[in-house]
Write a protein that binds this DNA or RNA. Structure first.
Lengths: 233, 233
DNA sequence: CGTATTATTGACTCCATTCAAAGATAGTGG
DNA sequence: CCACTATCTTTGAATGGAGTCAATAATACG
């Protein structure tokens, strides 16, 4: 399968979401020169680890991953779930050292933008800096939403989580009402700061209310509006 | 008092913390040309508002501020407390529109780096981009710590908050054991995601345990080690 | 000096956790 | 192919941490 070798940002289906989204056609051709396609990873494999040196910013071509951080007591915290077209590695911008780890949640492929010479790159492709700042800013905004999220009740948090996935899948051309959680109940709980048993109970509650249908890790949103009501927006 | 007019990044006491920290002497002279000193604000005044266009990244020269976001229900969430030498405005990097507001917590003065022409600026001062990415990366890391923080019990959260302030004040040359909270109990609670009554009770508990002394908003840490133990690190 | 804001303290309530046990599912090797 | 194990999920019961409500006290402010 050498088809992958021929993939460029110019013909990638994620070009409206990923790094190229704000660049001109010429600029996209410029970054195509420096972007590398990386080999595929399997569930459980690390993309990078806390403490690793930042060598590249990465984009998910296909599959999902979890961004985690371990506290002093060895507890895992899931900061984020990453979908196709999303950039990762920003946690390494400070001191060129990653402060988080990223683990594939399923079979996953990546694209890589080497950033060891950011200044050189800036000279080469001026628009790229603007775009990277945009993505960094987006991450900051998302993280801040997560901080706010932790102040609301568990049920609303879960609704937010499901709606957020729905929205992001939709943006990527997937169904906004049917998708698969690549996280276990435990992982959802860790991500949202609630116990896994509570996740299970709340999912059941949503199912009983006919707002969603949930079968193992497959989610079908039946009543999007009702779910939004629970979320409170 | 025209002394302020003569302040430059080169003679600023915050040069090891603020934007100049990673720049060469020559680069600092370059940014001095574009940096503006802004007039002083009073407690309660807005530095910028949610929805405002991003015109500049700002640095706090003196005083403290709170970075807030309002949810759909009109509840205020305090994302961050900002101390002298800290940069703000990164929430406006995405789409050039601020998603948060910043309000002075006491008399405050600012420095301003106009970023309407980021690409031009990058050409002029290549090191600046690297430095801005560093600061943006730092913000991302700090926000992620806050996300993790919300998963731990209220008492540990409060201990973390006090120790975090202590550490940051120390870095700025202030006492690490004595400082003034510029936040009300309500604001501390909003920031940490706990009720104001709980803040009051927990502060009292720490005082009764002779770990801190608290008188109105003045904090004196008596037993730094014990406080670190509570925090759990 | 009076009013508004902020802080303290107590009593009660409840949401979510923890503990516990059983059930379901997936993966592995004989 | 089935048994065996590990992992994940569901469900119930009891507990507790932190919230809410309420009343009072202290402080700041005009």
């Amino acid at each position: 399968m050498n088809i992958d070798k021929q993939v460029t940002c110019n013909n990638c289906s994620l070009d409206t979401i990923c790094l190229p989204r704000g660049l001109t056609k010429d600029e996209v051709e410029d970054i195509d020169v420096v972007i590398k396609r990386k080999k595929t990873l399997q569930r459980g494999e690390y993309i990078y680890r806390e403490g690793d040196e930042l060598k590249s910013l990465l984009a998910i071509k296909s599959g999902t991953a979890k961004l985690i951080s371990n506290d002093e007591r060895g507890n895992e915290h899931i900061i984020d779930v990453l979908l196709p077209g999303e950039l990762l590695g920003f946690d390494g911008l400070y001191n060129n050292k990653h402060t988080c780890s990223v683990i594939a949640l399923e079979t996953l492929s990546l694209c890589e933008l080497p950033v060891t010479d950011l200044e050189g790159l800036a000279k080469l492709i001026p628009g790229l800096m603007r775009e990277l700042f945009l993505h960094a800013g987006e991450k900051i905004n998302e993280d801040r939403n997560k901080i706010i999220l932790k102040n609301i009740p568990a049920e609303e948090r879960l609704a937010y989580f499901l709606l957020n996935l729905s929205k992001r899948y939709k943006k990527r051309g997937f169904s906004e009402t049917e998708f698969t959680l690549t996280l276990t109940r435990q992982e959802i709980g860790t991500h949202l700061g609630i116990a896994l048993e509570t996740v299970s109970r709340l999912l059941k509650k949503l199912k009983d209310s006919k707002i969603i249908d949930v079968e193992k890790r497959n989610i079908r949103i039946i009543d999007l509006k009702a779910l939004k009501n629970i979320q409170g927006s």
